[in-house]
Simulated assay, not measured.
Amino acid sequence: MQRFAILLALALTVPTIAAPAPCGNTSSGFEVWKKDFAKQAKRAGVKKKGLQALAQSQYATRTIAADRNQKSFKYSLDKFMRVRGADAIVSQGRKRKARNPQFYAALERQYGVPSGVLIAIHGMETGFGNFMGDSQVVSAITTLAYDCRRSDFFIPHAIGALKLVDQGSITTRTQGAKHGELGHTQFLPGNALTYGVDATGDGQVDFYNMTDALASTANFLRKKGWKTGRGYQPGQPNFAVIQQWNAASVYQQSIAIMAARIDG
């Protein structure tokens, strides 16, 4: 009896560790989850501005709808390329390269990535910056971190987005794609934080500036193992690096095909 009393006393004096707030598939638990996630974010190094951005974020219903309805990646390669306007991307991409060859050549010299690859990604992601999204990045990415479907994947990107707010690269008003991708080439926030390059030298990494965005994209590919002068078609060394940019097979093949046509 005395031993039981001692154990009970010890149990009462040991501080309890709060269990993390559960993920959810509706908006009902989002506000509670945010308060818990703020503790995790703070431990990860997110500071005042980032935590304020998290507190202001809202459950992004359109993001969830988009995440449940990604049909285009299930198309055949031919249909995917038609739907995504591959011929127009190649045509416009060749013109862009011809108008500014020194810019793309400088990127290739520095990072080893051919012009066609960067141009194809730029065209595929945002139509060369013509549409970079209409969803608030912080709200979109925190919603996906909360959502049970892929929370483990998106939590590091949510923390990345909050750190980008701390750094001044984005704000709570910054808009991007429905999955939280941002800028000219639609970086996920965690990747933006890791691979972003201030190519303009103005002291700020700005993914809505084409120079910074394309240099950052080239830096991502180089850091993922791009081998200068080697091929990037399926079966060649650099195709595996293109696969690091997007997980969809039809996307990867399309980039390789369009890049070769642009560079050809």
Rank of each mutant, 00 (worst) to 15 (best):
F30C: 07
P22F: 00
D198W: 00
V90L: 07
L162R: 14
G29Y: 03
D212Q: 10
A41G: 08
A88M: 07
A106G: 13
N191A: 13
L10D: 02
V197P: 02
R3T: 14
G168W: 06
Y251A: 12
R99K: 13
P15H: 09
A66W: 00
I64S: 00
G229I: 10
P22K: 12
G29N: 08
R82F: 05
Y104I: 13
A98L: 06
A247D: 00
V205I: 13
E181Q: 10
M1N: 14
L182T: 07
A192L: 05
Q167R: 14
G116V: 13
Y195N: 05
S169T: 14
V165E: 04
A192D: 07
A120P: 08
S249W: 04
A60S: 13
A55F: 05
R261V: 06
T228P: 11
L193A: 04
Q136F: 13
G45A: 04
Y104Q: 11
T63Q: 01
I255F: 11
F4Q: 15
R3S: 15
T228A: 14
G183R: 00
Y111K: 09
T185M: 01
P20I: 01
K49D: 13
H122L: 15
A120G: 05
K47G: 12
V113F: 02
T126W: 06
D166T: 01
F80M: 08
R173M: 02
Q175Y: 00
I257T: 11
R149K: 08
M81I: 10
V197Y: 03
Q233E: 07
G129Q: 11
T171N: 02
G176P: 00
Y59C: 09
A213H: 01
K34P: 11
